[in-house]
Structure formats: structure tokens, C-alpha cells
């Protein structure tokens, strides 16, 4: 915890990672798998937001939509078009799963941006489960739908014959790196943004730097709002890309 070394200006203490600590909400016992923690709380808020948007927003089922209904329809149309464009019409069968992933990530990211909140998507455990579920689903789906032809994904038939084994190894490695990069990209981005904001907040303890620090926090916050959406978008679109590979394995 060398980061916490005190600066000579007096009492500058950085705890950039303290915000990610998983704590029980009631009492402070050991954390079992069923313990109600801040993770539970913020994920429950995510569910509430999604349910609020889609259950309350579309309650009217109006032809001319209300504000909330148009937001819900916008999100629906956005992901629907993404799935259709990237993975083709066959991919639309898996639209609910992808939409679920997108909604969870986008709401968890934005809820994590509320000051003093807990960003669930900054945890590698969460993003790894998301990415692994995508990876396993896509791999199993590829083999179920295409049989051994799915292996054609690794055998680049357009390349010269001598190069193909080398390319196959590279493709294989890149295939298995997918869940790693998929999960770390999301978790790392969110964690990095929050940690950077926290470090800037630590500088605010020095009176002379404080205004600059506040401005910097505002700027980084703006960037993080963008990142929160872009990462959800990227996670979703990469899921679509992987799904396309499973549906049409030929290059």
C-alpha cells in the first residue's frame, strides 16, 4: 500500500481502490456467497432501473410514446439493429440474451458513476462471468449448429497452405484470449476511470490545487460517462461479432 505514503504537504492520503471493496451491508461478518453486500444492493438497483424503464415506461403501450417509452424503444431498437446488422437475421433469435447483457452493463456502469456508489462492473469476477458466459455460449452454439465445420474458423482457407498451421495456432490463441480481453476491457476501463477520479479527489486536500482538482474531476467524469456507454456498446457489439462467428464460421 505504498500509494498511501503521506505527502509532505500534510496528510495527502490516496485510497483509490477502497471504493471497490465488497462489504456486507448489515454487520461485518465473513462474506458468504449468500451474504447481502453492497454488490447485492447496487445490482438490485440495476434490476429496479431496468424494470422501471421497461415495466413502467411501456405501461401505456402507446402508439405515440411517452418520454420513458421512447427511451425504452430507443434502447430496444438500438440493440435490435446492432444484432441484426452484425450477426445477421439468424442472430435475432439470441436478441433477448444480448439485450439482457447490454441493459445490465449500461445500467451498472451508469449507477457506478453516482458519487459514493459501488461500480459492480469494475470487478473482474462480474465481467469474467459475463465474458465467459458469452464465450461458452458461442463456442457450444458453434459446435451444435455447425458441427466440426466450426473448426473452419481456425483454418484460414484463403491463406497459402504452408501458412495455414501457423495461422491456425494464432487464431486458436486469439480465440481463447477473447474472454480475457472481453472481460478485462470492461472491468479495467471502469476501474481505471473510478481510480483516476479518486486520485484527483485525493489532490483536492491541498488548498492551492483544489480548484484544478475539481475541474479535472469534472472533465474525467465527463469522459467516464462516455466510457460507461461505449464500453457497454463495445461489449455488446463484440458479443454480436462472436455470435456471428458461431453462426457463420466460414471466413
Amino acid at each position: 500500500m505504498a500509494v498511501e505514503t503521506e505527502a509532505e504537504e500534510g496528510g495527502l492520503v490516496f485510497h483509490p481502490l477502497d471504493q471497490f471493496i465488497v462489504k456486507p451491508l448489515f454487520g461485518d461478518g465473513e462474506i458468504h456467497w449468500y451474504t447481502i453486500t453492497n454488490v447485492t444492493f447496487w445490482m438490485a438497483l440495476t434490476i429496479l432501473c431496468v424494470a422501471g424503464l421497461f415495466a413502467l415506461g411501456t405501461r401505456g403501450r402507446a402508439i405515440v410514446p411517452s418520454r420513458m417509452q421512447s427511451v425504452a424503444e430507443l434502447a430496444y431498437g438500438f440493440v435490435y439493429k446492432m444484432v441484426e446488422d452484425v450477426s445477421g437475421r439468424e442472430g435475432l433469435k439470441y436478441f433477448p440474451y444480448i439485450f439482457t447483457l447490454f441493459l445490465f452493463i449500461v445500467f451498472a456502469n451508469f449507477l457506478g458513476l453516482i458519487p459514493t456508489s459501488f461500480a459492480t462492473t469494475s470487478h473482474i469476477a462480474v465481467t469474467a462471468v459475463l465474458a465467459l458466459s458469452v464465450f461458452l455460449t458461442v463456442t457450444i452454439l458453434g459446435f451444435v449448429l455447425n458441427g466440426t465445420k466450426f473448426l473452419g474458423l481456425f483454418w484460414v482457407s484463403s491463406a497459402p497452405l504452408a501458412l495455414r498451421p501457423v495461422l491456425a495456432i494464432i487464431e486458436l490463441i486469439s480465440y481463447f484470449v477473447r474472454p480475457v480481453s472481453h472481460s478485462i476491457r470492461l472491468g479495467g476501463n471502469i476501474m481505471a476511470g473510478h481510480a483516476v477520479i479518486k486520485v484527483f479527489a485525493g489532490f483536492a486536500a491541498i488548498a492551492t490545487v483544489a480548484p484544478l482538482s475539481v475541474i479535472a474531476i469534472a472533465a474525467i467524469y465527463g469522459l467516464e460517462v462516455l466510457v460507461a456507454f461505449i464500453q457497454a456498446y463495445v461489449f455488446t457489439i463484440l458479443t454480436c461479432v462472436y455470435l456471428k462467428d458461431a453462426l457463420h464460421p466460414s471466413h
Binding site: 446492432m82 480481453s181 476491457r185 479495467g188 481505471a192 461505449i230 463495445v234 457489439i237
Partner: peptide
């Protein structure tokens, strides 16, 4: 979409170093 995928791939490697 391609732009964002490209940015995401480039970004991911930076996140790895972070």
C-alpha cells in the same frame, strides 16, 4: 461499428498495461 470495435481492441491493450 467497426470504428468502435477497433478503438476497443486498441484500448483493451492499454488497459492490460494499466
Amino acid at each position: 461499428a467497426t470504428l468502435f470495435i477497433g478503438i476497443a481492441f486498441a484500448e483493451a491493450l492499454g488497459i492490460f498495461s494499466f
